[in-house]
Design a protein around this nucleic acid. Structure first.
Length: 579
RNA sequence: GUGCCCGUAGCUCAACUGGAUAGAGCACCAGCCUUCUAAGCUGGGGGUUACAGGUUCGAUUCCUGUCGGGCACGCCA
């Protein structure tokens, strides 16, 4: 086994580059190799000749012939043909393709790991939901996507850091603290009308009860005090809420921080636990508040001001983001002196850039798309290369249950939580369904389908292929590790050739998924691989009399099982040995 | 109204970033279990890629327009 065996595409690509240098050294054309859809078009097709036709003013087919003549010899190439308008079709030798089987078995769980990232450090920031309540199904998609993407980048040779940005500063957290306190007062029969735009969920009452149990009546104040000077909710719900928050801070003094922190700790802990059960882990939980505590937010605003990127209007500080292609300028510091979320976000990104990542990927909900221009603008204004930052937008997921859209109202507290979804359909199905679509496509999540234990459910289709192989290997009762020594020369059938080619493609799929930030490609690949295995299974027997044939076939399906395991692991889906 | 994304089989989605005859699953029809898991397999019907132009050897893919859908347009986070 040589290094080239596991990397046919780049090997062939090198050959074509050499041929190109001979035929048309002055032409700068990228060499693209594709897997043709039709088997008669060979294993790889190259359209180089057609791209050169115009600049060289020659017919594509004559250029193709010249390229073929100039192509260096290679042990893995069976033959090269000109086809159609000028495609160059390359056929690999059977032996070369067969060698993937021992290659996979040798590499084991590392098969598919490539050096695309070359050890470069990449940070993936995802989920980053406000810790103001349970994660819902929208966060779930970001979590599944971010986690799978991180795994793919890891397999592609990047050194990945997974980060959750905790919005522990700002008004939303104050609203949660207030909501908790009001529910607590309710337990002490203090009647204060609960604001409609406060957090309604039952989890708020739970936290109130915890505080009540731990500290009894310590935080009780009269309704009159709480409502002192608070404008009517009918006038303006937001000012009503803010006045209540102000009163809470005033009445509770240092105790306000306790309630605030209790709510934060509870919700963050709950989210962390939820995500861990979902197989989603983070290396870093970055606190927004720490940016204020360290003074970085103030510093970054000062830096922008020094650079002449800020101006004052109506008492507020505006960042001139229109100078960087944004639609309008944005406020970084409000009239009341408070910094906006945008300001702390600039500070956060400055901090990120300072941590020395070669590349950063933010996974955001698609509703944040209008936010990209201003963040890039701010980074550019700070003299940072915004090209190191990628924003991956993830579209919404809509749940369907019994053919009906499931209700998704945050205000009423009537939303389906990620936990409920996981409990109802299981972690495996949830993880897979979330990445079964391109992330920039809307996702219709059919809960009935995800739950169904039937042939309609793609989760079982994948897992079943793996379990079937394990079952066969178990009944064989031989030494699986010895299969890597199998003589695979007898693997000649159409089914076997198809499977061999699929196994060869796997590293290429990792590369595409990493380059396009598209873990769904792994899911599609696994579906294809499973389909080809199931066909093979129905058409052939593995535990046959002929020892050589049996050994070769078992080696092949063991390799298929290995790739299924590797791929499912990237998606966070288990690969059961029995079903 | 302005900006971004999208429109592919009855339904849910692919199509290797401009390639060869646009592919899967579900649903529908007809078959395959005394032999390794039928949660599987085999075959069949189903398309003017929303519509109209344009660019070129070649367009689902790129450009323009129209129609239809989603999202965003706060001194919120």
């Amino acid at each position: 086994m040589t290094a080239a065996v596991l990397n046919f595409k780049s090997h062939l690509s090198d050959l074509f580059v050499q041929a190109l240098c001979t035929v048309a050294p002055e032409q700068v054309v990228p060499v693209l190799l594709e897997r043709p859809k039709q088997v008669q078009h060979g294993d790889y097709a190259c359209n180089l000749a057609m791209q050169l036709a115009k600049p060289l003013k020659r017919s594509p087919r004559s250029i193709a012939q010249a390229l073929i003549d100039a192509l260096p010899a290679s042990g893995v190439v069976e033959k090269v043909e000109i086809a159609g308008a000028g495609f160059i079709n390359v056929f690999l030798t059977v032996a070369a393709k067969q060698s993937v089987v021992p290659g996979v078995l040798q590499a084991g769980e590392h098969y598919g790991h490539i050096q695309l990232g070359a050890g470069r450090r990449v940070q993936v920031e995802f989920v980053s939901a406000n810790p103001t309540g349970p994660l819902h199904v929208g966060h779930g998609r970001g979590a599944a996507y971010g986690a799978s993407l991180s795994n793919v980048l890891d397999a592609a040779g990047y050194k990945v850091s997974r980060e959750y940005y905790v919005n522990d500063a700002g008004r939303q957290m104050d609203i949660l603290a207030l909501s908790t306190w009001l529910r607590y007062l309710d337990l002490h029969a203090i009647q204060v009308p609960f604001p409609p735009n406060a957090y309604q969920g039952d989890y708020v009452r739970d936290m109130a009860r915890q505080i009540h149990v731990a500290h009894r009546a310590r935080y009780v104040h009269t309704a009159a005090e709480v409502l002192q000077g608070v404008p009517a909710v009918e006038e303006n719900a937001d000012t009503h809420l803010d006045a209540l928050i102000a009163n809470a801070k005033k009445l509770l003094g240092e105790d306000y921080a306790y309630i605030h922190n209790h709510a934060l700790t509870e919700q963050l802990g709950d989210g962390r636990h939820d995500l861990a059960e979902f197989g989603v882990h983070f290396d870093e939980w970055f606190s927004e508040q720490s940016l204020f505590d360290s003074g970085l937010v103030a510093q970054v605003v000062a830096r922008l001001k020094e650079g002449g990127h800020l101006y004052e209007q109506d008492g507020a500080q505006w960042f001139r983001s229109t100078a960087f292609g944004d639609e309008k300028d944005r406020v970084v510091q409000r009239e009341n002196g408070l910094y906006t979320y945008f300001a702390s976000d600039i500070a956060y990104h400055l901090n990120k850039f300072g941590r020395g990542f070669d590349r950063m990927i933010n996974v955001w909900g698609a509703d944040h798309h209008g936010y990209i221009a201003r963040v890039n603008g701010a980074l550019t204004a700070l003299g940072l290369d915004s090209g190191r930052l990628d924003i991956a937008l993830v579209q919404f997921a809509v749940l369907y249950r019994g053919g009906q859209k499931a209700a998704m109202s945050t205000r009423s507290g009537e939303f389906v939580t990620l936990r409920e979804l996981r409990n109802e359909v299981g972690n495996d199905a949830t993880r897979l369904f979330y990445v079964l679509r391109k992330s920039d496509q809307h996702l219709d999540f059919d809960m009935d389908l995800a739950k169904s234990q039937s042939n309609e459910n793609p989760v079982y289709y994948l897992q079943y292929a793996h379990a079937r192989i394990c079952s066969v290997l178990q009944q064989w009762e031989g030494d699986v590790a010895a299969l890597r020594q199998a003589d695979v020369g007898v693997l000649q059938s159409d089914y076997e050739r198809t499977l061999l080619q699929h196994l060869i493609d796997y590293p290429q799929v990792i590369e595409s998924a990493a380059e396009d930030l598209s873990p769904h490609l792994i899911a599609f690949y696994l579906k294809d691989l499973a389909a080809d295995f199931h066909s093979y299974y129905n058409a052939s027997r593995f535990l046959v009399e002929d020892e050589g044939l049996k050994f070769a076939r078992l080696a092949l399906i063991a390799a298929v099982a290995q790739v299924m395991r590797n791929g499912l692991a990237l998606l966070g889906v288990s690969a059961p040995e029995k079903m």
